[in-house]
Nucleic acid binder design. Structure first.
Lengths: 215, 215
DNA sequence: TAGATTGTTAATCGATTAACAATC
DNA sequence: TAGATTGTTAATCGATTAACAATC
């Protein structure tokens, strides 16, 4: 079984999904091979970085030829583990929770939302699409019965840490955190933060910087 | 008028909101002063980095004492331009659009959602909270009449570039992009991407890496 | 074979950390 | 004053870019 070079730098890992995306576009356009140079032009990066990045994981190209688009897609999907199906639950069935649920259901199917949980009992009434919404009280029991890989936190800021603790107690493997809370989790649990608020402040910073430059 | 050091490195800028957040927490706890050392312990960073970061923008501390919490908060809010009110429109009134609308309305009021737009005429019927939802056809006219700072793109992938073009034509200053599309915009327009899909692939990568390490 | 382009090593650049003189 | 802690310069570390031999 193939083992990937462990501990590739995170900046490299975070670029892989972008490579994947551009390669899929190329595939749709019917392009079968691409050189690091041409890909770099399309992506606005450097050929050197692309080659360097890919070689953390293996030699996927061929000298004098370039990269076979569909093969490289498969390779990246394997690295990112896109082919596996991850069982998810969403904590918080408000607009954000629903948005993420829809989003995931449109993802190529490598994530499956098993259930949603909410403290608001009224939300548990509506059978939301196909996905059942349970009261948070039932979370513990639910996680005892079913294997869950990823908990997606879509609760308000104040409930963040408490929701995290609940899924950790339930034996979760990974948390996709959409709250503004900084979660402290035990060793071995994967946390990926989507810090929407921070993103907005960066935007306002850039806006004000731009306005200053114009004056 | 004070001018900030231009072109602070983006890694530094992206850390500022986190400083802000932790300082606000300290303020709530009644802490009035903090040293870079103590703050670094709380945040899991280094004292050196904190001092280095802040000094891109000015000397906000005092030797032998540390930083005055509330003064530093004000300083960071000024740097990030958090005190200003930004007029936003949301393109796409689905769950994600609504989630972002709610989110912004809970933000300390430095952003104001003026209106939402959607191609689905049925969505324009519901008067959503206080925020009106218009048909996308009316966007051009709307932007002629009102000054808008930020367009928030919450449309499906395929409509991304087209929605971006519409707000660019309308004279937008900044785009907060929640679509997976890579937008190419003219010089001078600020774009901040929230790449949710990339974030999920990073999570699955980390999960699979973890599983391999356990074997 | 000649041309193209990779994989990989070496050079550069930028960001983080360490150290310490300045000073409250 | 003595102790603490900043602001800032210097040292280190890591990531990106450049270069080129290997090879398809």
């Amino acid at each position: 079984m193939q083992t990937f070079a462990k501990n590739a730098p995170m900046p490299v890992v975070r670029r892989l999904p972008k490579y994947h995306k551009y390669l899929k576009e190329l595939l749709e356009e019917g392009v079968t091979k691409i050189s690091s140079k041409n890909l770099s032009v399309r992506m606005g990066s450097t050929a050197s970085q692309i080659r360097q990045d890919l070689n953390y994981f293996g030699g996927f190209g061929q000298q004098g030829y370039g990269y076979n688009v569909s093969e490289l897609i498969v390779a990246i999907e394997e690295i990112l583990s896109i082919h596996e199906v991850y069982r998810c639950i969403i904590i918080g069935a408000g607009n954000l929770g629903k948005a993420i649920r829809n989003y995931i259901m449109n993802l190529d199917g490598n994530a499956k939302v098993l259930a949603m949980f909410d403290v608001d009992a009224s939300k548990t009434q509506e059978k939301d699409g196909e996905i059942p919404v349970y009261h948070t009280d039932q979370l513990k029991e639910y996680m005892r019965k079913r294997e869950v890989d990823v908990a997606i936190l879509c609760v308000p800021k104040s409930s963040g840490p408490q929701a995290a603790q609940a899924v950790i107690d339930g034996g979760i493997h990974a948390i996709w955190n959409f709250t503004t809370a900084d979660l402290s989790v035990p060793e071995g649990i994967v946390v990926e933060n989507v810090a929407i608020n921070e993103s907005f402040y960066v935007l306002t910073y850039l806006l004000s910087e731009k306005q200053q430059n114009q004056t």
